[in-house]
Design a protein around this nucleic acid. Structure first.
Lengths: 206, 206, 206, 206
DNA sequence: AATGAATGAGACTTCATTCAT
DNA sequence: TATGAATGAAGTCTCATTCAT
């Protein structure tokens, strides 16, 4: 679903190739997966892979790039906008919606998420290409959100940048630990509530 | 995982090999680094690498295993114990000591930390071998800590397991984002304070 | 070598294929040109090439063979015959006519000439098939010419075979160096005169 | 012999590789010879070829370049200089020495000569790299020779450039037709005499 | 202890060719 | 007639590992 941003007519074999590749990259990592294995598992000839994707590298990119292109925009437009237009919403509502929405999105393509995270962690090169893209896409939007709720007096008065970092650390850690480290995990409503409470109030007894 | 631990008399060449391997694994990942490259950069013959380490895999383990064996025990014995014996200490003190101590440890061998994290993320296989080891080592100890401060009334009254998860998510996310994603980063005292505040009180205005 | 000769109704696509193939074979050599590239540059599907020509090899032959079939006969019948019927003609006239005529012919299809020469040089196999064909076609005719002018007392008295070899060496060298090595060359009248003088009188001062 | 300009210790297998490669390139052309075939005929593993030469292309260059580096300089220094220092020498002597010497040189490494000629003809790219090198090396020297014999009144009075072209066309044609087209040929003294006579006096009866 | 030549398995990729549409 | 997806054999190249010196 996510990788089909350019809905060029994909052949059946192409779909099998991509699906298989995602599964294998997610499990063993791109570098530890040979095109021969992909071909075999996809029940396709190796030639077919290269006819369609040219290089193994391009096969990876054709999985990662459309996913990222959808991950952030949809985050922005589906969540941020929608939520923030309801003028009764609190930051708690916002967080809840954000987590629910992204968990939903990631769950639908859990393996691609794993591939993306693994490869970004693994190769400095890829990381350096993508991190700026992240920064641009997220930071700007999240800043607006923070500003919005600060004005409503819901958030503590420290520089946005510092709030941002904490949020990113925790939410990123949340997604990565659940969906990559503890693979194959479904997040319960209780866990979401816990997370929100943690973000808002920490763990100190009051 | 049991093999290769004691730092027996290492020859000069062995040191050069290990140092070079760490640097290269950290940058490009184990799977993308060839023994030929390591040999070349270490100014050593390929034969020498295999004389000492037998296989490339064993070279990796001889880097990772001693590191992990030191990471957790030292965490336990240097930090937990020491801190908790001072009976005036608050959870805030504990957190501060923990973060300072681990940041120090990681900073001293930043590259090995990167190698460990990257490889654990990358290969499900290695992850599955090491995660249980983690669980055993950390969870037990941290449980005691939580229990301790709960009794003092410093922590909220939810099951340990849930507190644990939040802590691990945030602290793990903290280390990984700083030392692996945003490579080459030095953590300031301000950031540590922010982190502690976040953990204890969240970001809600009060 | 017998197949594929008559220029049957060629479709537009066929023409594009052949033209493109000639250009690419001339530049990079048959072995370094893939049918995929030809198809792409000719804006035709790979399937179409094989519909028409069956194999890549046959595509080459369908270029080379008709060319050779025209090269020698036309040389014989347009030049030799025509010239030699004018009974005032000297060997100098003959040479002049021969060079002019062949330069004209080659210039019109410079690229095919390059293909033919390159491939004959490159593969011993092809060479061995074609050299006998050459011998048969040229030697006989040129022998008659030499005989003719010898009887008129214009040529030195050494065995035909030796004259032949010198002529072939120089004229062949002339064509190949101008049209294959120094590609894209137009031969001036001066150069032709020089060549004729060289053949007849050499470079010794008299 | 010719390829060993840098006498780095060549292993036995390296020699076998180069010898085999020369033979096969000479026969079927570089592009039509696979590294697998070379390895098989040289009784060596394919890996060994790439250990020593890195790429197939570099293997070719390691054959061609040292040969050319020796071909022209030795022509210059062994022939030109030596001959021209004998003040009784005529141009006829010079030609004779030149032909004898180069025929000798080529005969000793007939196959490398074939490889060089074939590849230069085949790939425009290689040709464009090497032709300038030729020009620089030959033209300058041959010019001096022509000048020298012109002053002695042995050569006709036309611009050097034109004499040069004729000489190059014929001598080049001579070598190429004998050693590449009519492979495996030994040049007789008679043929050399014929060639010299042709160059000096042409074929016109006087 | 150290070397580096050698290897063979397997990696990625190219290619001529086939075939259903 | 024309297409272009699909193929499998073969091509170049990489790699961890071995072994004689």
């Amino acid at each position: 679903m996510a990788q089909a941003s350019k809905p060029k007519k994909q052949t059946v074999k192409q779909q099998r190739i991509v699906e298989t590749a995602i599964k294998m990259f997610a499990e063993k990592g791109y570098a530890n997966t040979s095109t021969a294995e992909i071909a075999k598992n996809a029940e396709v000839s190796e030639g077919t892979i290269f006819k369609h994707y040219g290089t193994k590298d391009h096969l990876l990119l054709s999985i990662i790039v459309p996913y990222l292109k959808e991950f952030f925009p949809s985050m922005a437009d589906e969540v941020f906008h929608e939520i923030m237009s309801e003028n009764v919403a609190t930051f708690e509502h916002f967080l809840h919606a954000l987590l629910r929405n992204r968990i939903q999105f990631i769950s639908e393509n859990k393996e691609i998420f794993q591939v993306v995270v693994k490869e970004i962690f693994y190769k400095d090169e890829l990381k350096n290409e993508l991190l700026p893209y992240f920064a641009e896409n997220i930071i700007i939007r999240i800043n607006k959100v923070i500003e919005f709720y600060k004005e409503r007096g819901e958030l503590i008065d420290i520089p946005n940048e510092r709030i941002q970092k904490m949020l990113f650390t925790f939410i990123g850690g949340f997604f990565v630990s659940r969906f990559v480290l503890l693979n194959n995990y479904t997040v319960s409503e209780v866990e979401i509530k816990d997370a929100i409470h943690f973000v808002l109030d920490g763990i100190r007894k009051r």
